[in-house]
Amino acid sequence: MKQHSEIGAMLAEHEFLRGMSSKHIALMEEFTSVDTFHPGDYVFRAGEEAEYTYLIRSGRISIEIYDPQRGAVLLETIAAEKVLGWSWLVPPYKWCFDARAVEVTRMLCLNAERLRQAGELDHEFGYEFHKRFTGVFAERLRAARLQLMDMYGPLT
């Protein structure tokens, strides 16, 4: 287990949290740990409780959906400096997809329940955190729509 001061530094320098106040970084330090996933390791699987949200420091994670006919289909890969997992934000707090490490991946793991509590107690923190997540949603939704339109496919 890393020391909190190191975790605080890692949180502060992550792109997703850049510019966040040191008070809020210190708050998150209380419920953040560091974990390493090896290629093939599942970070989570669809249907499981969404207990953490993850900030990727290095490596790459693939978001997948399992289809009995097609097997695991890769929908997106998420790399360093990005955030992984939003199902902890909306009830019933269960993952919708699988997440699997493609490379050795190091991530900051933020306890979801504590995050929700912290947002309720400190609305300034909650707003700041949600505002950043909204940016992530917008970016992912746009990318998903572009992928959906099959832009390299036939025009007809």
Binding site: R70, L74, A79, A143, D150, Y152
Partner: peptide, 21 residues
């Protein structure tokens, strides 16, 4: 690529997502 199976070790997503890094 826009979509793939588990035997693919590259990126999945839109190509512009590679630009920031």
């Amino acid at each position: 690529v826009d979509r793939a199976h588990q035997d693919w070790f590259g990126h999945v997503g839109v190509v512009s997502s590679l630009i920031p890094r």
